[in-house]
Design a protein around this nucleic acid. Structure first.
Lengths: 186, 186
DNA sequence: ACTTTATCTAAACAATCGTTTAGATATACA
DNA sequence: TGTATATCTAAACGATTGTTTAGATAAAGT
């Protein structure tokens, strides 16, 4: 009986993600969100509850975006070589989407790491997704025990987050060299 | 002829640093600064110009704090082994000063990386300091050409920033294992 | 002791923050 | 076609943002 929404929630969240990605949580105001999302305050709060809700949906949106590169890793069967390729794909993805904005998940951990458990847990899902795929690929390289694989996957996650954060300030050449060097002796 | 300041600028900046370190630039309000620094708005603006000025002085203060661990690296003469020790010292320093606050320089790059050149350039000095010391230590290990050392130093910087960022979410065991693994094959 | 000058206190500034509300509008079913 | 209901618009909410100001206070040179 009621009237229809004039906007599609997934589409406006995509606009919100773009803003949060560039300016961070606190650096993005409600007014900026209204303008970019193209809807009024009422609609934002009716659809997402509050600013935090908009941000959490933005994380989910980002997680879906990551599928573009994680799907490739998921279907790879060449062990750590697939992980190495994922490192390259990650850098390419970050440089395409916003040259100096880094990874939205890494940014989120950094800005809201202390004191925002809801946002934190949603952002960490991105990392769990990827770590699980790393574990999967590491299993493909001969038989290693569970603990070794876990440790290696954790190390790879730290290397990846470092690389993604570095993508905000280092040149592509240096990032490439870092990847090459990282996988030389693993 | 004028009356004296009732506060010592270095001391109140130390309080400001503590706040910025924990809550970030945008997460720290002028009111929080007044309270923690123990001085009135007038005094803050008279001494430091504005909020950005307080932050920049906080970075300088942090850079001086870092001397506690960089001095040790500076006086070391055992090549990459000294760098490895610096990684351990860095983690220890971050976990001592504020368990989950990470490295203030890394945080700054992350939060104000886009759109705040003044703060950015001040924060980058911390990295230049450390990279120069890395280069110095790498020269101690046999004769390598300039370019090789530069690349290795850049890689070490990315590893370090990744480690420092990881110190916000990973356990000390995982961080230690990461360092151990990193320097196994270098 | 008087003047000078920077610092102190305390209040307030306009602007913006995230969020809410009141009333008009449009849809789908009866 | 009339009614119910969620969404629209537009304005405003109190709180907080970073910053400034006006007047009282204290130190040092004459």
């Amino acid at each position: 009986m009621p009237r229809k929404k004039k906007y599609i929630e997934e589409e406006v969240i995509d606009k919100a993600l773009t803003l949060f990605w560039q300016y961070g949580y606190e650096g993005t105001s409600a007014r900026m969100l209204e303008k970019a999302m193209g809807i009024n305050p009422y609609s934002i709060y009716a659809s997402f509850g509050n600013k935090q809700g908009v941000y959490i949906e933005s994380i989910k949106c980002y997680r879906r975006m990551l599928n573009a590169i994680t799907d490739k890793l998921k279907s790879s069967a060449n062990g750590k070589e697939g992980v190495k390729q994922y490192f390259y794909d990650s850098v390419a993805f970050m440089l395409e989407t916003g040259p100096k904005n880094g990874c939205f998940a890494v940014n989120t951990i950094n800005e809201r790491g202390n004191g925002d458990p809801m946002i934190m847990s949603e952002a960490l899902k991105c990392f769990y997704d990827i770590k699980a795929l790393f574990v999967n690929n590491l299993k493909q390289d001969g038989q290693k025990d569970f603990q070794t694989i876990e440790k290696q996957a954790d190390n790879l996650m730290m290397l990846l987050t470092g690389l993604l954060m570095a993508s905000k300030i280092y040149s592509k050449e240096k990032l490439d060299h870092f990847i090459e060097n990282t996988f030389e002796n693993i």
